[in-house]
């Protein structure tokens, strides 16, 4: 297994050649903010929050899908990147309808945490106030599209871990949204096994358990982690 040596924020770091910058940074205890990345799922580079600077390239690269290379010089926390990340978070808040005070995930939301991390005390883009829907047709879960940030974690966890592939993304640009089966009410989507993995994976209050109210929705990410570890170590294969 080839090992690559690179610097991250002027620190010498070694990583396996198959690793991404994000993995190498995390192994070295260097924090890079992420949103669409979820341990155990494939990476899609959708949210751009993990953008880093690489010496010799004037394009910013998403750390979650960029592989390490020998001699690479990476910066994860320049002023430019901080500005950029705050802008991304502001865009996410402005594009949806995030009313944290009445949200099931208030206090347990990755988007809300990221806003705090980026120092976002207010949003300076125009709020779009889009008209979006809520689907409560499923017996156990609901989805409020007003709070969806299109990270596709639900899509990937359902496909890659549960193997059901109930979720997909439909539409483009402002009209993009997640759908269940053939764009039908979730409660009528036959492929859904009601396993709840999408709810655990969803970083925001978009997917929630029926009957939860403000601030009650905690996402059990440790359950996903447990399943991932067991799969990786083949703990269930006797």
């Amino acid at each position: 297994m080839a090992v690559k040596t690179l610097t991250i924020n002027d620190r010498l770091v070694s990583a396996r050649e198959s690793e991404t910058i994000l993995e190498a940074a995390r192994d070295a205890g260097i924090h890079i903010p992420t949103l669409c990345h979820l341990e155990g799922l494939s990476d899609v580079g959708a949210c751009r929050l993990c953008l880093v600077e690489i010496a010799g390239s004037h394009k910013l690269q998403p750390a979650c899908v960029t592989k390490v290379a020998e001699g690479m010089e990476v910066k994860t926390d320049s002023e430019k990147l901080q500005k950029y990340r705050r802008m991304i978070i502001e865009m996410l808040f402005a594009e949806g309808n995030h009313v944290c005070s009445v949200c099931v995930a208030n206090g347990n939301c990755e988007l809300q945490d990221l806003a705090v991390e980026m120092g976002m005390d207010s949003v300076h883009l125009n709020y779009q106030f889009p008209q979006r829907t809520v689907d409560l047709s499923h017996d156990r879960f609901g989805i409020d599209h007003n709070r969806c940030v299109l990270c596709t974690r639900c899509v990937r966890v359902c496909d890659e871990i549960e193997g059901a592939h109930t979720w997909d993304v439909a539409g483009r640009g402002h009209n993009a949204h997640v759908i269940t089966d053939l764009n039908q009410p979730w409660g009528t989507a036959d492929s859904c096994t009601s396993c709840g993995k999408c709810m655990m994976a969803c970083p925001t209050g978009a997917i929630f358990a029926q009957g939860t109210t403000v601030s009650e929705m905690t996402k059990e990410r440790d359950k996903l982690e447990f399943i991932n570890t067991a799969r990786k170590n083949q703990e269930w294969i006797l």
């Binding site: 808040f93 309808n97 995030h98 009313v99 944290c100 005070s101 009445v102 005390d121 207010s122 949003v123 709020y127 106030f129 889009p130 008209q131 979006r132």
Partner: peptide, 14 residues
């Protein structure tokens, strides 16, 4: 939040 984001007061905006 109402002053900063519109919050509950702005729920009618969409």
């Amino acid at each position: 939040d109402c002053a900063v984001t519109g919050n509950v007061t702005a729920l009618r905006n969409p």
